[in-house]
């Protein structure tokens, strides 16, 4: 049996697993609303911000994400497909050596991870990365 990568991935990705932290999907607020609330609706630029996320995560319960936006005051992270899209806000203080951080997050299925950086001049930068989540249906 031979499937192309795309077909195979397409048939094998689903969202909620029994162990998932978010089995019931009731969306409190959408990511768009949360982002609008954060930026006050201001336009965002996609230059000057980097978001590193795996293209395919082996398990949605622990996905390592890295974000960097040189000069930012704050970076806020969203998982657009989670019941509560807010993930974390990083405020960088005077002792920070870079405006970058790595953390591990939960993703309830394939979705966009979004990072918005708030710059000292009041502008906002935005990066989006789509992450597919495999569901290991096997092996307990």
């Amino acid at each position: 049996m031979s499937l192309t990568r795309r077909e195979f991935v397409g048939t094998s990705l689903t969202s909620a697993a029994a162990f998932a932290a978010f089995p019931s999907m009731s969306f409190a607020a959408t990511a768009d609303e949360a982002i609008a609330a954060y930026t006050g609706g201001a336009a965002t630029s996609d230059a000057g911000i980097t978001l590193i996320a795996p293209e395919i995560a082996e398990n949605g319960n622990t996905v390592q994400i890295e974000v960097s936006a040189p000069g930012a005051e704050e970076i806020i992270m969203f998982a657009a497909g989670n019941p509560n899209p807010n993930v974390a806000t990083f405020k960088f203080g005077p002792m920070s050596g870079s405006q970058a951080a790595t953390t591990r997050i939960r993703l309830a299925g394939e979705q966009d991870v979004i990072a918005i950086a708030k710059m000292p001049d009041g502008s906002f930068l935005k990066a989006v990365s789509n992450v597919k989540v495999t569901i290991g249906g096997c092996g307990g």
């Binding site: 509560n84 990083f90 002792m95 951080a101 790595t102």
Partner: peptide, 20 residues
Amino acid sequence: VVVDVTMEPSIATNPYFQFE
């Protein structure tokens, strides 16, 4: 302050951070 992080339930079990 180096970094001050507000965390939501989407942060994975056994929270991990790396920064400079």
